[in-house]
Design a binder for these strands. Structure first.
Lengths: 137, 137
DNA sequence: CTCCGTGCAAATACTTTGCAAAGCG
DNA sequence: CGCTTTGCAAAGTATTTGCACGGAG
């Protein structure tokens, strides 16, 4: 039933790349990052492996930002912030919804809830300070 | 500065279509729904108007589900649930994050937060009961 | 030797865009 | 009339997939 999984150096590298950053990378970012060390790496492989990791729960998907899916190697519950100005994705360490409330919602609405994603949208600190500067001019 | 906005029967129809349902439609759904009454409607127009409504805050985007952006005519704060089995999007009336907590996060992390989206992932009631049935067989 | 993993390129799928024509004010 | 909106079709972009070959067990 379970599919056998062979070792692959590239797969390891892809996972390591996602885990190496808090930038919530795209498939293409991972590809570009690994390309120098793995010149024959192909984008399809990156996509295939990311999809597999995501399905396994080894990584999570933050969602699609500006048309590109963003991944996160940090699978502990936390919150994400997306800057509508520069498109960056930031981690917010706080967890705003307790597992009790999730369990409550499951009962109340007859759902099975597997994950809880919170996405805040707005302007990041960096973009905020740039805006302030320019408004002084 | 503000761009002038002309009346358009099709634009009205597009907004009405999104508001007419709680299915959190895609651009294509809106297009197909209006096509019979507006045979010369084009998909590009639907995309253009949805983008505009979203920017105006007249509608909101639930996010991208299975590669397609889902919209919602209900702009009051609420929560969304996405079924990983059938892809449906359900409204959860509850609001899990108070505006006080949002304001707190803004101060704590030096952000400007414009919207708070909560996306629960799991299995919807309908798919749950189907699974139960089939496990009896 | 037998499957799994991959490169490559083609195919998909959704969304965006340029342009000329039609519509609103 | 001037600016907005649209249809149409082409282009753009991210992602997926088929297939033959190289690699792990």
């Amino acid at each position: 039933m379970e599919k056998r999984r062979n070792y692959s150096r590239k797969r390891e590298a892809i996972l390591a790349a996602v885990r190496s950053t808090t930038s919530h990378p795209t498939a293409d970012w991972v590809y570009e990052k690994l390309k120098p060390e793995y010149p024959d790496l192909s984008l399809g492989t990156v996509y295939r492996n990311l999809a597999q990791f995501k399905q396994d729960g080894t990584i999570i998907s933050v969602g699609v930002v500006n048309g590109q899916e963003r991944f996160d190697g940090n699978v502990r519950p936390h919150t994400h912030f997306v800057c509508s100005n520069c498109g960056c994705v930031l981690d917010i360490p706080d967890e705003y919804i307790s597992s009790e409330r999730v369990a409550q919602a499951e009962r109340k609405y007859h759902l099975q809830i597997d994950s809880t994603d919170i996405l805040l949208h707005g302007v990041c600190p960096e973009c905020l300070s740039k805006k302030q500067e320019s408004s002084h001019g």
